[in-house]
Design a protein around this nucleic acid. Structure first.
Length: 908
RNA sequence: GGGCGCUUGGCUCAGUUGGUUAGAGCGACUGGUUUACACCCAGUAGGUCGGGAGUUCGAAUCUCUCAGCGCCCACCA
């Protein structure tokens, strides 16, 4: 007999348990004995950014993935969960820059090399924190294969794919209008731009024959056209004509174009077009082949071509120009309260300056020679109908497929260059003499540019200063991680090869589990990069979880101060409770709220499991429990729990396979708490087949530990030690079989139904006592009328349970015939009748009222069934199965009502 | 402006393809030191599923519409 402390204390067990797992080597699929033809199962962990610490959302992600991984490992699949981290170029660089600022320095003062050394120190520290956190959550990932988006092997993959794309003509360098942050001196991706609503002035300017409204008069210096809506009658005869427009720097020529994009209701219906400094204008300009004139430079200042305004920041220039316009009398009027959205840099809040800049792009519309399809087409088809003889990628929940298509179909060329230092430097070298600020077209002379995996030989080559968008490397994640070293990665005949056993075994991966917020950033990019580079899919399924919000439903953020650190939760409630609180009660793709109370509830759950184990250990010696179960000694309670267990295994498995983690968890809780603890164990205390029962108890509990293990690995593994004499690890044990349980349950001669009847009787008695306020300690007699002899025998068999399970029954009298019992609570259960004389406690009026209420209810229900069955449409159209069940219901309901009637009449 | 989602007892949420009198946890209330667990046990109350219309033999579940809330995308001079 073992004695365990009465409360489970996670912190006393979790660290040792994790060490034990790691030491076993079982996180690595190579060390697990699997069947020879075992299926493989692989998840790539979405690599957390090395910018600090994990947040609660990561904790949820780890919980979901670990559930899948542990389940499949126990099912006998060759299971790999590969962890890693992301260098997160911009985010990380910004963090380090902030630190430098505090120190009174900046990256330019340090220089590229020293700065990157600094970043490395920071990321190493951050990495260690993250790894520690992942372990604390109980994640069973294979650390021996850990990857980093910026390590040597991943670097080779990145350069290889870049070169492939360049050779395929998909990558080009071009001048395009980009979001430019004048402070950071870098382009920003669309998702790095934030919008704030602001009130500004709207200037109505006399513009040759037009009057038009603009919020940015200073851009007039870069105007090359005026656009109107094609249906706008006001301007119809002006379209396609050229006009001379007087301006602060003299007159200039513009062309009038008609374009659908113009909103005739805005301003005067005519808008000025500044192709170089507005996305919308640029789009119109491209369509109509309008010239572009750049007037604002990378510092956000007016350029040399702006005459006396040259060198002024845009805001200053605006004021000066407006002043001059007023002098010229070309300001018609000014709206002071013009509300519009202004785009800002998400890092430094500086207003974005759209401007043309020389960047590297991936062409998403150009056909890839070997596929005859563009990146865009390939990526859409992969999810719509499947490509490369693979089934289509399924996104769960399905509704996100729509978002995906919408995004993908509207995808524009992907700008992959960033003007920051931290990241994969663009693998392009220029001949010094060529100067790298020149247009792409000038590189027609191939001797001046070199794109390759290794630097070119020879003198005078300079590498591009920019780095790649961080998503370029994370887009390769599902396969770049499966190479052990750079030399396993090669390009042959325009295709990427990963020459490793892991790649053969584990790619495509089974499922990509992540938050829906990075569907576009990351998932879409992985699909793009993998289909392109490998001619294969990165994963079969995508499972998207929601975001974790605070108790009030607000996003967690540092500024709001409502951030929950998962490690605090682990410390206070244990990793198991933290995991459950993130998994149960959440739906795929839907945000969830997390409150302290919820986690407490799951801490209680772990403790409940612990105490069930503790109880069983006090009653049995698991190592001595002999198998197989002595079936002939088994009671109906045994049959019931074994049957329930079989059902549980089946449904949990189905739920996990279909990513219904919450449902499976709830079913496990219900089985453990309601069925096993509150009914089966309670009943077991009063039954006499001790030996057979102990075997059942140990068997069921051990398998329950297995079923719970993917959810709450620590407490289950801790308990397992006491139940398994082989000193094996629960994490490497095999998943129980539902069939076995069904078989055993069916072999027991006592039927599970008997126990169900007993349960119902007990519940009725307890309820009656409570409703009538019968004091604890007052014992009552119970009369049961059952017509069938067999039923009476069954009840007789269950007597000790009926007497002891909080019913406080002194005596049970079985009646062969219905008899009038005075002053009794009466009820009918599955065809039998029970009477509980309540002595003085019964209030005849109250009981009559109660029965009358029950009668009315039953009658109402009877009527609805009758109405249904009388409805010809129903009997004609409804499936037979439904009609039959309605008929059965009707029969039962009639019986029930008759009985209530007799109870009522016997009350006098 | 376009798209997506949510609205179920006091709170937080389930509800798989439309088919038993809609479930759970927490909270509330009543009663309990009972062979593990007060991080516990027994019991009770409480909702007709946001409003309206429709499809159907049958709707929380499908369609339309209105209202409130939230998110994503685009960004317009």
């Amino acid at each position: 007999m073992q004695t365990l402390p009465s409360a489970y204390s996670p912190r006393d067990h979790e660290p040792q348990i994790y060490k034990k797992w790691e030491k076993s080597g079982y996180f690595n699929p190579n060390n697990l004995k699997c069947r020879n033809n075992a299926r493989t199962y692989c998840i790539m962990m979405p690599p957390p950014n090395v910018t600090g610490t994990l947040h609660i959302g990561h904790a949820g992600m780890l919980a979901y993935e670990d559930i899948l991984i542990r389940y499949h490992r126990m099912k006998g699949d060759r299971t790999l969960w590969l962890p890693g981290t992301d260098h997160a170029a911009i985010a990380t660089q910004t963090k380090v820059e902030k630190v430098l600022k505090k120190e009174g320095t900046n990256r330019h003062k340090l220089g590229r090399k020293a700065f990157l050394d600094r970043v490395e120190v920071f990321t190493k520290e951050s990495h260690n924190t993250i790894v520690d956190q992942i372990k604390k959550m109980g994640s069973s990932c294979d650390w021996s294969r850990e990857a980093y988006t910026l390590d040597e092997t991943r670097h080779k993959a990145v350069y290889s794919v870049f070169k492939m794309m360049y050779d395929d003509g998909l990558i080009y360098r071009g001048e395009r209008i980009v979001n430019w942050c004048p402070r950071c001196h870098s382009t920003l991706a669309n998702d790095e731009v934030e919008y704030t609503e602001e009130t500004a002035k709207l200037y109505w300017i006399k513009y040759g024959p037009f009057i038009l409204a603009t919020a940015r008069p200073e851009t007039k210096l870069g105007d090359t056209a005026v656009a109107v809506h094609p249906d706008d009658k006001r301007y119809k005869n002006m379209v396609n004509k050229e006009y001379e427009i007087p301006g602060v720097l003299g007159t200039f020529k513009i062309k009038v174009v008609a374009d659908e994009e113009v909103n005739p209701k805005f301003g005067s219906g005519a808008i000025k077009i500044t192709p170089a400094h507005s996305f919308a204008d640029n789009k119109i300009a491209q369509k109509h082949n309008l010239p572009s004139k750049k007037i604002i430079d990378e510092d956000g200042k007016m350029m040399k071509n702006c005459g006396k305004y040259a060198g002024m920041p845009t805001k200053e220039a605006r004021e000066a120009i407006v002043k001059d316009m007023a002098k010229m009398g070309i300001i018609d009027h000014i709206d002071e309260n013009y509300k519009h959205n202004i785009s800002r840099c998400y890092r430094c809040d500086t207003p974005i300056e759209p401007l043309p800049s020389l960047q590297w792009f991936i062409d998403v519309n150009k056909k890839i020679p070997r596929y005859g399809k563009s990146i865009k087409e390939l990526s859409v088809e992969t999810v719509r109908k499947g490509v490369f003889n693979r089934q289509k990628i399924k996104i769960c929940p399905k509704r996100f497929e729509k978002n995906y298509f919408h995004w993908m179909e509207n995808l524009q060329d992907w700008c992959v260059s960033r003007q920051i230092w931290f990241g994969h430097r663009i693998p392009v070298w220029y001949k010094e003499s060529s100067k790298f600020k020149v247009q792409s077209s000038k590189f027609k002379n191939k001797k001046e540019i070199y794109v390759g995996i290794k630097p070119p030989t020879g003198k005078g080559w300079v590498q591009d200063k920019d780095t790649l968008d961080t998503w370029f490397s994370s887009g390769l994640w599902t396969f770049s991680t499966l190479a052990d070293s750079p030399n396993q990665i090669s390009v042959k005949n325009g295709k990427l090869y990963i020459d490793s056993q892991d790649f053969k075994d584990f790619h495509p991966t089974q499922v990509l589990e992540t938050g829906y917020d990075i569907l576009f950033f990351w998932i879409a990019r992985m699909i793009i990069m993998t289909t392109y580079a490998l001619g294969d899919i990165p994963f079969y399924d995508v499972y998207l979880h929601g975001l974790v919000l605070d108790k009030k439903g607000k996003k967690m953020s540092k500024s709001k101060g409502n951030v929950v650190d998962p490690l605090d939760l682990v410390r206070e409630y244990g990793a198991d409770a933290t995991r459950l609180s993130l998994v149960i009660g959440s739906t795929p793709g839907t945000d969830m709220r997390l409150a302290k109370e919820k986690i407490e509830g799951y801490r209680n759950l772990a403790n409940k499991l612990w105490n069930i184990g503790r109880y069983i250990l006090q009653k049995t010696t698991p190592s001595d429990t002999s198998y197989p179960i002595n079936i002939k000694d088994c009671t109906s309670a045994d049959a019931w729990i074994l049957k329930k267990m079989g059902e549980l295994i089946k449904t949990v498995e189905k739920d996990i396979q279909q990513y219904r983690f919450s449902q499976a968890g709830e079913k496990l809780r219900e089985f453990m708490w309601d069925d096993l603890a509150d009914w089966y164990i309670e009943a077991s205390k009063y039954e006499e087949n001790v030996e057979a029962k102990n075997t059942v108890l140990v068997l069921v509990f051990k398998d329950l530990l297995k079923l719970w293990h993917p959810y709450i690995p620590f407490v289950t593994e801790t308990l397992w030690v006491y139940f398994d004499s082989n000193r094996s690890l629960l994490m490497a044990s095999s998943w129980p079989s539902a069939d076995t349980y069904e078989k055993i349950a069916n072999m027991i001669k006592n039927d599970a139904c008997q126990f169900i009847l007993t349960k119902k009787i007990i519940t009725a008695v307890r309820s009656a006592r409570s409703v009538y306020r019968i004091k604890t300690g007052i014992k009552l007699e119970l009369f049961i009328y059952a017509k069938d002899r067999s039923t009476r025998t069954e009840i007789e068999d269950q007597k000790s349970i009926l007497l002891n399970l909080r019913t406080e029954i002194a005596k049970i009298t079985l009646l062969k015939e219905r008899r009038q019992i005075k002053n009794a609570f009466a009820a009918t259960i599955d065809g039998i009748e029970i009477f509980l004389p309540l002595k003085d406690a019964i209030d005849i009026n109250k009981e009559r009222k109660r029965l009358q209420g029950e009668y009315n209810n039953a009658n109402k229900y009877l009527q609805t069934i009758e109405r249904k069955l009388q409805n010809r449409d129903f009997t004609r159209k409804a499936p037979k199965k439904i009609i039959e069940s309605e008929k059965t219901k009707l029969k039962h309901q009639k019986l029930k009502i008759n009985k209530i009637k007799t109870f009522l009449s016997s009350l006098e």
